[in-house]
Write a protein that binds this DNA or RNA. Structure first.
Length: 568
RNA sequence: UGGGGCGUCGCCAAGUGGUAAGGCACUGGAUUUUGAUUCCAGGAUACCUAGGUUCGAAUCCUAGCGCCCCAGCCA
């Protein structure tokens, strides 16, 4: 079965997507014999938060290329800023990459593994006259940097001697100066049109506890310096990052040009992922969590990997999606519907079918014996007999969906209505004879008769029954809480109106909790993350908080519904 | 007004001078005990705009226009 799944999945993955402009570059490098014919990539998250779907795009790209070229992909934590990074994020990131189905094959590294080497190379830069210690404050550095249209001014410390720089830098390392007192800067060009080249800071003083190196260091390297050197030390051949780093590439190349003992990986940039009806930046997600609009980082409404996992997404769906959206340099805003479609495609393939009634309406089968139970066979998947079948109980009292009954049916409505017939899925054809109401006129119960000749739902006399509805036996059901999740925001692009706080577009009905749902008895043993299709409703999965006597399901995504279009 | 990018169907995206792939969405139709799935069919005289080169341009040249990113001792 797994084998079959993998064949079908690989077929799905091949159906669309695949090559992109980066493959073109790699192919050309290989053709020229660059990098000794090797391809090594890396996924380099900073452990300062949880991964989201945007990271999944990068993970699929980096591990995907490595796989396609029989190369390797390293997982590297870019942990150069001790004030924002934590071990819990490291653990969560490792878990997320594994869950997505990728294997770094033991190639797990930390930028902090190279702190001593970074330091040695910094000494080399100082001795080469390419770096200097600067005493300017952060504010002064900013004003000296100039503006987008005006060149910067040289720091007064720019021409310190190598000896003085060496002495000062060693003392920075020794912890002799307080945070912010001094920095090490690259000596490049304060008049450069690219701001990143105006003597960027490469080391700052931080008397802080680092999750990996503790208090061993008082100075920490900046991203621009640490990243390219880390890539070189790991023999990365292609360093893939997002578009906003394009302006940093000259600096990436500058450092490596000053360090001729190191290989020189190629940085290639691609567009980050944006999705409608959500936000995709750590800062925004943090705001949602801290404002309590959502319940933590794994809230099923969030695009975090822990969130979508809890929501019921499969790693396969995410991979199909990443494959299909492609990799380009064009900034895009991808329709959430596209992601949902990839999800449905995978879930349709793997989720067993089951019946559940979310908003119950009691139905009495008046001509069915009150003590009898008729066990009816029901396939677990209509297109895949290999998934087997189960028996569902048919009894005198059952529940159907309130929405499947209309006292005054609108045109085209072919479910239950007074005097009408409908098929109970895998059950019998029933006819609605009486509508029972309470004092306020609310429909509280339906009285129907069943046609015993139609067991299994087959019409024996050739009469056409257009409607088939789901149902559960009132005698044997399990009660459940069902959490209906919908889009996080009410507008496709909550970031579009810059004047407004994006949180104003939060969708107040993004979570609706239904506490009196009934699910068929076979679901009593379902475990967290188990996925099902509730027939005619959507895909649901068992929440982590679910217990055998207190089942909780999350709605992952609804089924496509063309009736809703007719109705509106 | 500096520098770096990007502009091909509603949303993605192929295309690298030879006469516009594909996916999603949409619209028809078929099958269906999920108004699901599956299947079949449909669509850019047109590639930001305007000129130009060429037998021929989305692809080359020129000039515009639009959008994104950059002034952290964040990554």
């Amino acid at each position: 079965m797994d084998f079959l799944i993998s064949i079908i999945m690989s077929d799905l993955e091949n159906r669309v997507g695949g090559k992109n402009f980066i493959y073109g570059i790699v192919d050309e490098d290989l053709r020229c014999g660059k990098n000794g014919g090797k391809v090594v990539t890396r996924f380099p998250p900073e452990p300062n938060g949880y991964l989201h779907i945007g990271h999944a795009k990068s993970i699929c790209l980096n591990f995907g290329i490595a796989e396609d070229y029989s190369g390797s992909c390293n997982l590297r934590f870019d942990d150069t800023n001790p004030t924002t990074e934590e071990q819990k994020y490291i653990d969560a990131i490792e878990e997320a990459v594994k869950w997505l189905g990728f294997d770094w094959q033991g190639r797990l590294f930390y930028a902090s593994d190279y702190f001593a080497r970074f330091f040695e190379f910094a000494l080399f830069l100082i001795k080469a006259g390419k770096a200097y210690v600067c005493d300017l404050t952060a504010d002064q550095i900013r004003t000296h940097r100039g503006t987008l249209t005006e060149p910067g001014k040289d720091s007064p410390h720019r021409n310190r001697t190598v000896e003085e720089n060496l002495d000062l830098f060693l003392r920075m390392r020794a912890g002799e100066f307080p945070d912010g007192a001094k920095v090490l800067r690259a000596k490049i060009d304060m008049g450069a049109a690219n701001l990143n080249m105006r003597d960027p800071v490469i080391y700052r003083i931080r008397h802080a506890m680092h999750p990996k190196t503790g208090n061993q260091w008082a100075i920490y390297p900046m991203y621009d310096y640490a990243h390219c050197v880390s890539d070189a030390l790991e023999n990365i051949t292609h360093s893939l990052c997002t578009l906003e780093f394009e302006d940093h590439r000259p600096l990436y190349d500058w450092f490596l040009n000053q360090l001729p003992m190191l290989p020189h990986p190629q940085q290639i940039e691609f567009a980050r992922l944006n999705l409608t009806y959500t936000v995709m930046s750590k800062r925004k997600l943090l705001e949602l969590v801290e404002s309590k609009l959502v319940n933590g980082w794994d809230d099923p409404r969030l695009p975090t990997l822990v969130g979508v996992r809890r929501r019921g997404f499969t790693p396969e769906a995410l991979r199909i999606f990443c494959q299909r959206i492609g990799i380009t340099k064009q900034e895009s805003l991808i329709d959430m519907g596209y992601l949902e479609e990839c999800l449905r495609e995978d879930l349709n393939f793997r989720a067993p079918r089951v019946m559940a009634v979310l908003k119950p309406l009691k139905v009495i089968i008046t001509n069915f014996d009150g003590d009898a139970i008729d066990y009816l066979p029901a396939p677990n998947h209509p297109q895949n007999v290999a998934m087997g079948s189960r028996e569902i109980a048919f009894t005198r009292e059952i529940y159907v969906e309130r929405d499947d009954f209309m006292e005054q049916p609108s045109p085209g409505f072919f479910r239950l209505k007074p005097g009408g017939e409908v098929r109970l899925r895998y059950g019998y054809i029933v006819k609605c004879n009486d509508v029972v109401k309470d004092a306020q006129g609310n429909v509280i119960e339906l009285h129907c008769t069943y046609d015993p000749r139609t067991r299994g739902g087959n019409s024996v006399d050739g009469r056409k029954i257009k409607g088939t509805i789901h149902w559960v036996s009132a005698q044997t059901v399990a009660r459940a809480e069902v959490r209906l999740y919908d889009r996080l925001f009410e507008v496709p692009n909550p970031m579009q109106q810059r004047s407004k706080d994006f949180k104003e577009f939060f969708n107040p009905t993004s979570l609706v909790v239904l506490r009196d749902c009934f699910v068929e008895a076979s679901l009593k043993q379902a475990k967290a993350e188990d996925k099902f299709q509730f027939e005619r409703l959507g895909y649901f999965c068992v929440d982590y908080d679910s217990r055998e006597n207190g089942l909780i399901f999350n709605r992952t995504v609804t089924l496509k519904d063309s009736w809703i279009k007719v109705r509106c």
